[in-house]
Structure formats: structure tokens, C-alpha cells
Design a protein around this nucleic acid. Sequence first.
DNA 1: GCCGTTTTCGGCCCGACTGTTTTCAGTCG
Length: 562
Amino acid sequence: MERSNQQVAGVLAFMGQLLEIKGENVFKIRAFYRASDIVERLARPVAGMDEHELDQIEGIGKNIAKKIIEIVTTGTCAELEELKSEIPTHLIELLKLEGIGPKTVAILWKKLGIQSIDDLEREAKGHRIRAIKGFGEKKEEIFLASIAHLRKEAGRMNRFEAEAVVEKVSPAMTPGTFEVAGSFRRGKSTVGDIDIISTERPSVLNPKIRQIAEAMIDEGDRKTSFRILSRRVDIRFSRPEQFGSMSLYLTGSKPFNIRLRELAITKGYKISEYGIEERDTGKLVEFSTEEDMFAFLGLPYIPPELREDWGEVERARANDLPKLVGQSDIRGDLHVHSDWSDGRTPIGKLAETGALMGYDYIVCTDHAPRTHIMHGLDPDKIKERAHEIEVANRSSRCRVLEGIEVDIMSDGSIGLSDAVLADLDFVIASIHAGFREERDVMTRRILGAMENENVDVIGHPTGRLIGQRTGYEVDLSRVIELAARTKTALELNASPYRLDLDDMYVKQAVDTGVKIAIGTDAHQSGELSEMRYGITTARRGWCRPSDVLNTMSAESLLEWAG
DNA sequence: GCCGTTTTCGGCCCGACTGTTTTCAGTCG
């Protein structure tokens, strides 16, 4: 059986971790991590590509190309097997601990035989760590604190949780003196920690932070780190004249920063968070805005959502960045539930809210029956609902379209007859049950649904719930390929609990010519405002307005849906 | 391990903070 890109990427990253513990050349390690990222987000399956094709991809050379081919066919490769014979593979769990890196893991293993977090806890509590040269009492404390933190940590935050942390920190800071940067600003669907730039004086802000922090991690004049709501917050202090370079640095991503700094080197510059230094003269040029700094480098402004080193720097150099979709391009919401199924808001009120959002239309996609969710609409109810939609449309500026969200059954068939579906304006087909099937079975179910010509959109295509459920196993490469052939759109579910498809797959879909349907999946009128999370994720997936169904007029949408 | 309008060898982003230190390694972002 051939391995998917996700599986190959996983093996490459695993090799990177083992090489780190082994103490290999850091640039070799970086090459493995980079190759892992590249394979994961590649629109084409690596299975079936030959060595030459793989080698053509920037960041993948002859050596890793050979390994990828081995991994595709066998699931492993010779070098990995050799590494596994040298290093206990479960050592990598220790890398998850904050403050513990590969060097420390290797020493703990070689000196004390520590192979797991439980081993480390026992040795630290027994005060046996301090016997190792270069380690002391304080290290034992740090290790135990890291273990405690890891055990209670809930993983990465969803957007709501991240916003809650920002809300909690904000009162300690003077309005207008700070900006949230990092993955929060890049709009990632999950956020690891909160990064903030402050122009206040450290001597003023640090004491206030001590007041609100649950624990201080670092405290300095340039940088302060602490924990609040059990989450890590990093603050970097900056003068307003250097705000642009600090903002660029702290927004990242790390690979983007590296790429930009490499580019600067070729032009004779050195970039840091303080500005751009001319190599020859040593003169530091300061920038109060990011725009000025990009301009100095001869680049157009690269929006934060694109800063992932997914090719945006090269496109910027060629002045060929995509014009990204924005809130003002959105003319409707494609996934809304009313009180006819499991929503709480009547159709009339939804239309009013849609009008307030500035929409031309919303698509009312109540559930069809036969789902475990109550109140599914049978054909009779669909007719009754049609009447209410008609009444609402007489008085509303925002038109309500007649849609349905129908289940994809275990055999890939659809939970309503074709005759009923054909009468509706818009059909979303989603999986709501049978999540545990094997990858191939799940994939065939979705492919089957797409073959039904009445199906316009596949809803929340991976079924993930951020922080709760990883989603079912599905080969998205095959789904995207068939979506392009059958002209089926893929949903970008805008709920911060889903954001499904995620950015990387949105980009793969768009690169393959598949349309994206952004829907809030709102179950009450207030949730229509969650569209903004969907738009941000679409931007992260390089969506132009023309890639997104919601930018169509109601007439064009109806025509597209047939 | 990857890469190349100065290179097929010799580079590979840059800086802050801590602990255990007599000058720095490790980790992190």
C-alpha cells in the first residue's frame, strides 16, 4: 500500500527528531524538517513521483528524494531503521517538555538511562540529576515544573481560547501601546502561545505583569515571558521607531523570517528585530512600520496570513502575490441552520442578521433526517420550510436560499432522494456518523457523494473538532482531485471549533482548481459573525475572490449549483 | 542534507535569557 503525503511527512519529521537527539549537524536536521513540511502541504501525492520529479522540488535533494521513495513503498527507510537501532524512539516524548532540548535528552539518557517522562520525574524527585556535570538543583526544579505543566496543558488553543488569553492580559497594558503578533496575528486556526509587542517601558510594565501572571518564566528589559490561564505569553519591548522590524520578527513565522533574512544577506543586509544593518557600513536602518521595511527590501507588502514560507517570498520578489479574498468580497453565508432543524433562530431573524452583515443572501442548510441529530427535515417539512422562506424573502434585503445539509451514508450514498435534492437550491453533503472506518473506506464514501450531481459542497471535509477530535482518516489528495473533476466545492467551515478544511488543504484545493465554500455552520444568528475566522483561513490558503463561492452573486451561485 | 549571476565546497537567520559558569552552552522564539 502506498503512503500518503501526511504519512511520509510524519516519517521525515520523526527522523529529524531522532537526528537531533543523536546530535547530528543542525543543518541536516533542518533539511529533514523542511522536507517534512514541504511534503505535507504538496498538492500532488508524492506516491508515484520519481526521484527526478522529487529532486526538482526546492528543499528536496537527491538524498531525501531517495528516502521518500523508500518510505512511500515500505513505510520506512534504511537510515530510519539504523537510527532506531541506536536510539530508543520514545526518547522523543521528552522533547515535548519546555526547557528540555535534544542535548539535554541525550545526556539524561546516557548518564542516567532516563527514557521517559516518568523516569525523569523519578530521578528529579530523587535529586539524582544534580550529580551530572552542568546540572544543578535549579534544573531539577525546572524539569518537575515542565512535567507538571505538560500534564495539565490542553495542547494548542483554538481562536476563542487565544482571544480569551489576550483579553486577560490586555487590562495590564496601556491601550495603543501594544500589538498581538505571532501565529495569532497570522490567523492560524490554532495558537500555541501569545506574542505581544509593547512600546511601554519594561520598568513600568514588568511589575504590572507580575501582578496578573500565574507564573513568571523570564523577565528582562527586552523580553518578558509568563503564564496566564495556564498559557505562555511572550512580550517583546520595542521603541516606536523600531516597531516595524519588531512586528515583522515577532509575527514570524520562523521559516518566513529565515527566508527573508537569507534574501537580505544576498543584498548585503542583515535583518534583526531592531532593523536592517548594512553589512559594509554597519549602519542600522530603523523602520516604524512593516510596509517601510518590505519596501526597503524591494518587496510588496506580504500579508501576515501568507508568512509561512509557502512560496510567498519568491512570489513577492516577482511582484506576483495573489490578491487575497477579504470581508468586503463576501456576499453570503453558505451554511446556516434555522429553528426548522437544530438551530435556535427563526428564518426571518437569520435574514435580518444576514442583511446587517451586508450579505445579499444566506443559504439555509437545515439538516436532513436520518442523522442522529434531532429534527431533520423530511420532504414534507422541506415544503413547509419553503413557504416560510418565501414569506421571509418578501420583506428581507438579504435573500434566503433553500438548502440542505444531508448525510453521507456508510456506502457513500446520500440521505435524501435525488428528486428531493434536485428541487433545492444548494446541497451540502457531510459525514456525521461512522467516523471510525478505515481511511480507504472513508475516502470512498466522500468520493461517492461527490459523484452525485446534486451535491454542491462537501461539508467540514475532515470532521475534526479542534482540541477534541482529530477528524476521520481520509485521503484528501483523492478528494481534491475528484472535487476538481466533478466541480464539487469543498467547505471551509468557519467555526473556530472546526476551521475545516484547514489552511494547507485549502491551498492544495485552490492550487488544483477546486472552489471553496465558506460557511459558518451557524446554529443561532450571533454565529454568523464567525465568518471572519473562515475568511482568515481562506486567506491563509491563498484564496483569491474568484476561488471562493461566497463572492458570487445569488444568481451566479444558483447557476453554478445548477 | 540542500544549494549555487562571485561558489560543486563551504556556507546555512539572529538575538534574548537562564543556569552553571570563569566564558558559554542550551533552549527558545
